[in-house]
Design a protein around this nucleic acid. Structure first.
Length: 256
DNA sequence: TACTCTGGATCTGTAAACTT
DNA sequence: AAGTTTACAGATCCAGAGTA
């Protein structure tokens, strides 16, 4: 639980249920168990939750959003061998936008894992969150850049001819950025691809998938990417969240 | 034996919107 | 002005299963 929350920065009770309590007799029972475990971790001061709306015009209460408390950081740091990041720094108040984005990235991960679990025809080999999935490279100007995908994903599909391993970089878009900003980020992927670093390591370059909210947005972004100069459109795909399961089941095919 | 975990059933708390 | 509706997370009770 601590690792999941550490990796995603923020997770809701429901998301933790979907990620960690998947073999219960009923959804209700899974939810109850999730709550009990979170309560315990909260009581031990390992977790804290953000303020949430309770009652009101939309009815019910908002699902709690959890993050690690300082003790939780410390414990995770010790449990993970103290290897991956520095000791707990002061936790500063996150912006609502940051939280929403973290939760949306987690939703994408959940969609992928649920697809794998429910269909059985795709296997999740690796899923890496920030900052472990960052890629450092030197661009054509000689400056050091860092590529920061929202999620790095390796999946495996099988058919009668054998296994196929697919690699992906996922970017989750909540329509908060203007298309030129998205295009600039695509150019960063393109620049990284030109270094050949990734291909040297794994043989292929991952497909960069923009996961957006609406079909109108897919069209806007796809148009912007196609219109951009020096951008290999075969490298990118823009889809809605609903299309994500189909995409990873089908492997990399089709076009922008 | 003694403790913990699980899961079904049912009850509470909450506050804006709606009704009377 | 007062009461009711709404919708959901969460609380509580409890029996049966699991475990040391």
């Amino acid at each position: 639980m601590l690792t999941l929350i550490h990796d995603h920065k923020f997770l809701t009770t429901r998301q933790l249920q979907a990620l960690a309590f998947t073999h219960h007799a009923s959804e209700l029972s899974a939810a109850r168990t999730t709550r009990r475990v979170l309560q315990r971790l909260h009581r031990e001061r390992l977790l804290a939750s953000l303020p949430r709306r309770v009652g009101g015009m939309y009815g019910g209460a908002e699902n709690p959003t959890w993050h690690l408390a300082p003790t939780g950081y410390r414990l995770h740091y010790l449990a993970s061998g103290g290897a991956d990041d520095e000791l707990p720094r002061r936790i500063r108040e996150p912006s609502e936008r940051t939280v929403k984005h973290c939760l949306a990235v987690a939703d994408a991960r959940i969609a992928v894992e649920e697809t794998a679990r429910e269909t059985g025809d795709v296997l999740v080999v690796r899923i890496v969150t920030e900052p472990d999935n960052w890629r450092r490279y030197t661009d054509s100007m000689g400056t050091t850049e860092v590529l920061k995908p929202d999620l790095e994903l390796v999946t495996r599909t099988s058919d009668e001819h054998g296994h196929y391993e697919d690699r992906w970089f996922l970017e989750v878009d909540l329509s908060t950025e203007h298309p030129p900003v998205i295009v600039r980020q695509c150019q960063q992927y393109e620049a990284y691809r030109r270094t050949g670093q990734e291909q040297d390591r794994t043989g292929v370059f991952p497909l960069v998938v923009w996961v957006v909210r609406t079909t109108a947005r897919t069209q806007r972004l796809a148009r912007a990417i196609r219109a951009a100069r020096r951008l290999d459109t075969g490298l990118f795909r823009v889809i809605t969240g609903e299309q994500l399961p189909a995409l990873i089941r089908g492997g990399v095919g089709g076009e922008l």
